[in-house]
Design a protein around this nucleic acid. Structure first.
Lengths: 341, 341
DNA sequence: TATATCCAGTTAATCGATTTACCATCAAAA
DNA sequence: TTTTGATGGTAAATCGATTAACTGGATATA
């Protein structure tokens, strides 16, 4: 177990002060008038022995950790997993590491995680915030930490966020169902007061009303890690509402559970019930017949998130007006929502 | 922006030396004979002002970072995402944070990532290693770092690993197809010399041979982030082999791509071609008809991985014999592989 | 009486960097 | 001759913890 080299070892080996080594390694040689000869000698030796500065020590001194904290609802959800993946790539390319975790939409857990991130001196935060976390986020912002929210935002909190046009997306999807001749359209989703969910429900309601229909069939299910806790109420809903002819699901997860229940009950889409789900992914594409879905622009979201955060990390432009970026979704119309007969 | 409190601030406020504070906070008060009165006073004050030790400074001094580096092939793949999720949960419960990244099975990228992890002083490594990384892993182990591999292992390298019985799994799946009366069975997978893939191919070959058939229809596709790079050769394969009546796919990703191609070409499973894929997930469960799949015990894998790593982190039992844990898979038989007619 | 042991802590070194403040030397300018 | 300025660096403080070694006084033992 060879001991790791420190800057002192380098300094001693070359008979130079560690200050000089530090300046050279940080590209401040010119500014500090270190001779080209010495710079070359040091660089060569450093490369030769493979010396790398200890980043803990560096972080302790400078206060920067080159780490970004990423908090999503659930990293095993394909929507969040693919965004995490894209963010990871861009972050690494820019010299940042990612520490991530899943909040489970649990306020207490999220608070603990924020404390942990804080404690670890992450340089910036990216999060899909749960409810009730406003104060903690504000406190972060007051302490000068860059925070970028995505997928949803916190109404009172002044910070940048990236999300999609949820209201229009479900409005448009509901319209699509109405245009196909469906009337008893239900909206099934997770129970939540988060902005994205409120907007999705509103979109559904607005579309129904604009067609003179009552948007009354709304089923909200409590978020739970254990899938059976979601399946049970969903099953009840299907059994209790036999006259529903179309369902709009609020997220990919609940949409997938819905498909499972339909499989269980032997119901076919779209002949028995037409289906549209928020968040497109392979399950919907490959379902036969394929399921119409509201596709979020995952790459664009990830790109915008990391771009905004990097801007904040680089400019120290503290108090520019926060950006709100609203992206468009794409209603992928597949034949499952065509009314037959 | 309130300044963060340091141990010195606490010491000054209470007129006590910082050493004493440190001992108390680290539960060494008894051992160091600090009076109960003082302990109480310090604890109370610390709780009151919400002081938290700076973990960077702590890590710098102690050499421990309470961080685990997790490297998977691709965090957006459901198999790895769910394992990551489970590991994350257990790690946090035990006071460890996770830094993760995707290797893309790229040796160079993985080397860079290992260096980064090393640089960040992670306390332990969990990885699904790509090819050609043997030396780097050995160097980690020589430096006394705990390393646990999963999903595959590196034959020459002496370290713990957790994986499934790949050979039996594909043997069994192939047998199942043979029992159904299929004869022209193909094995389609990613090109790889990794142990899990070698075993999976062997399982297929052994089963075919044991039935007196030639296991010649093997298609290996180069791993690529860009899905179309996978789809194209796969499409060619389907078109070029019209007499294949069943396919065993080596991973969920390639299985999913296979389903997409079949959808494209209007081929139905199992009437046109029977399908079995390694790695079970929603896409296979919900496909109609559902796809038979080899389910890996994701929770068990994650559990074993983190348990073994935590053992290594706690015991400093340096040189016990490394454990090789081989778990069983479960062939989820669904009707798509029933030969009809 | 001299020495050892127990208290209840404290001093100072240390981890490995960054950064502020300073110091010789020499040439040119006043 | 003294002052100024550039050149090419270095010494020491600092970030915020942990930890080995020590201290001064009271009590117990030889």
């Amino acid at each position: 177990m060879k001991k790791k080299l420190s800057i002192v070892d380098i300094a001693n080996a070359l008979n130079v002060s560690k200050t000089t080594i530090s300046f050279i390694l940080n590209g401040r040689a010119q500014e500090k008038r270190i001779s080209g000869d010495l710079v070359e000698k040091v660089m060569k030796y450093v490369a030769e022995v493979g010396y790398k500065p200890n980043s803990l020590a560096k972080s302790l001194r400078t206060g920067k950790s080159n780490t970004i904290g990423l908090m999503v609802e659930d990293i095993s959800n394909p929507f969040f997993a693919s965004i995490a993946r894209l963010i990871e790539d861009r972050a690494y390319k820019n010299g940042y590491k990612i520490i991530y975790c899943s909040t489970d939409n649990d306020t207490q857990k999220t608070q603990d995680l924020i404390n942990m991130f804080r404690d670890r001196h992450v340089d910036g935060y990216i999060m899909a915030p749960p409810e009730g976390i406003e104060e903690d986020i504000e406190s972060l912002i007051n302490d000068g930490m860059p925070v970028v929210l995505f997928d949803r935002h916190l109404p009172g909190v002044k910070t940048d966020f990236i999300e999609v046009d949820n209201l229009f997306s479900t409005f448009n999807a509901t319209k699509h169902l109405l245009d196909q001749g469906f009337k008893n359209i239900a909206f099934v989703t997770f129970k939540s007061h988060q902005t994205q969910m409120v907007d999705r429900i509103r979109g559904y309601q607005d579309a129904m009303k604009s067609n003179g229909l009552k948007p009354t069939i709304i089923k909200e299910i409590v978020f739970n890690q254990d899938e059976e806790q979601i399946m049970a109420p969903l099953r009840d809903f299907f059994k209790g509402n036999p006259d529903v002819d179309a369902i709009l699901f609020g997220t990919n997860h609940i949409g997938t559970c819905g498909l499972k229940i339909m499989q269980e009950l032997g119901k076919k889409a779209p002949t028995d019930i037409a289906i549209i789900s928020f968040d497109d992914y392979d399950v919907f594409k490959l379902h036969s017949p394929p399921v119409t879905a509201i596709a979020q622009p995952v790459e664009e979201i990830a790109d915008n998130v990391i771009t905004v955060l990097l801007e904040k990390l680089n400019n120290l432009s503290v108090s520019e007006k926060p950006q709100s970026i609203i992206l468009k979704t794409d209603l992928k119309i597949r034949n499952s929502s065509v009314k037959i007969g």
